[in-house]
């Protein structure tokens, strides 16, 4: 990252997304076992929510990003099973190195996670190829290797604003 870029941009980094899942246990198994996330703080917001199992918040760190998941059990329709490349308005793309892209694909196969791809991107852009898939609650996700990966920091860690 050049000093010039740091001076001109108005935002440092994307830090986290708060988004819903249908089942926290299934989400934790997916994000930790398949994506290698680490689970962090968990909170129930009120006694009534605890009783009903709703509004539970749990956070997961994936590299330099945090997903803050909440339970919304019955209020989200699932996307069609054969749709992988959508976005409920948004989709998270996680970077893997080109050298480990096949390893990532094999891991999805091993965990029986259906996906679309690899989809190649134009050579004039920073993306090489992507795999598109979903978490158990139908949130759209993506693995991508980047043509500019040598210019990006390695072993990035989550920068907490807290």
């Amino acid at each position: 990252m050049s000093e010039e870029m740091i001076m001109t941009t108005g935002m440092h980094s994307l830090n986290h997304t708060a988004m819903p899942v249908h089942d926290m246990a299934a989400a934790e198994a997916f994000y930790c076992d398949v994506l290698g996330a680490t689970a962090h703080q968990a909170t129930c917001f009120s006694l009534e929510d605890v009783k009903t199992g709703a509004a539970i918040f749990k956070s997961f760190v994936i590299g330099d990003f945090l997903l803050a998941l909440t339970v919304a059990r019955n209020s989200m329709d699932m996307p069609p099973p054969d749709r992988f490349r959508g976005a409920h308005g948004y989709r998270h793309g996680f970077q893997v190195s080109r050298a480990r892209f096949d390893e990532i694909r094999a891991a999805l196969d091993a965990h029986r996670v259906p996906y679309q791809g690899p989809v190649a991107h134009p050579e004039k852009g920073p993306f090489g190829a992507s795999l598109y898939f979903k978490d158990p609650s139908g949130n759209f996700l993506e693995f991508v290797w980047r043509r500019d990966e040598d210019a990006l920091p390695r072993n990035r860690s989550y920068l907490s604003p807290e």
Partner: peptide, 30 residues
């Protein structure tokens, strides 16, 4: 600044920033 990218894709619409009745979805910038 840290290299995170935002990819805007134009769709015919309408877009769905919130899934179903879940209004707490947000993205945070540091």
């Amino acid at each position: 600044a840290a290299g995170h990218l935002v990819l805007l894709v134009e769709v015919p619409g309408p877009v769905e920033p919130f899934r179903g009745k879940t209004t707490s979805i947000h993205h945070a910038w540091y």
